[in-house]
């Protein structure tokens, strides 16, 4: 092989080496930049003190039959009603075809006497009345939203008025017969 050809081959090898070095350096730098960006993104995720309040435990033993309490979970009002037998039966007797947002009562409760819902009207976000005695419960004996006249039944389902969906049920677990953890 002539000298010129050897040199040419040598240069080509050098170039391939340089390309590989360049490509790998750029790749490693890019990975580094992504790893460096992650803390800035993750820092905006909920912090540990916020997550500590992400679930609330509640003792239900003080709530008598027919009574309701309002608790707070993740900044939202939680309606818990200790339903009477009459209220439970009324909830069960409703035909699905009559419901704007069809859901059986069984699908909305874990233990029939205890109805746990997020107390925010699914229309435009007001807090429906019906928690305290003396407050209007609406035509279906559940809850009544004064803002635009939505009526909810004893299972928290929308029966009349502009709200599109039933009152939402949060994730909760019974830790014992008398305590629940929401979230």
């Amino acid at each position: 092989m002539s000298d010129a050809a050897t040199t040419h081959q040598g240069h080509a090898d050098d170039e391939t080496k340089r390309d590989f070095l360049l490509v790998s350096t750029v790749t490693v730098s890019a990975v580094g930049a992504a790893l460096a960006a992650w803390p800035f993104i993750d820092t905006m995720n909920p912090s540990k003190d916020v997550l500590a309040l992400a679930s609330t435990e509640l003792n239900l033993s003080a709530i008598e039959e027919g009574q309701a309490i309002t608790a707070v979970w993740r900044g939202k009002p939680i309606y818990i009603r200790h339903r009477t037998a009459a209220e439970i039966d009324a909830a069960k007797d409703v035909k699905l075809a009559d419901l704007k947002d069809p859901e059986t009562d069984a699908d909305r409760v874990q233990k029939a006497p205890w109805l746990v819902m997020i107390g925010i009207c699914t229309h435009l976000g007001c807090l429906p009345q019906g928690q305290r005695s003396g407050e209007p419960k609406g035509e279906f004996n559940g809850w009544f939203c004064p803002c635009h006249g939505s009526h909810y039944d004893t299972s928290g389902r929308i029966r009349k008025g502009p709200a599109p969906k039933n009152l939402a049920v949060p994730p909760y677990t019974f830790l014992s017969d008398t305590t629940i953890r929401i979230g």
Partner: peptide
């Protein structure tokens, strides 16, 4: 460790 590796690579590219 990552930075030492990366800086080494950057030095090699610089020299090239």
């Amino acid at each position: 460790l990552f930075l030492i590796v990366l800086t080494g690579m950057l030095y090699a590219v610089k020299r090239k």
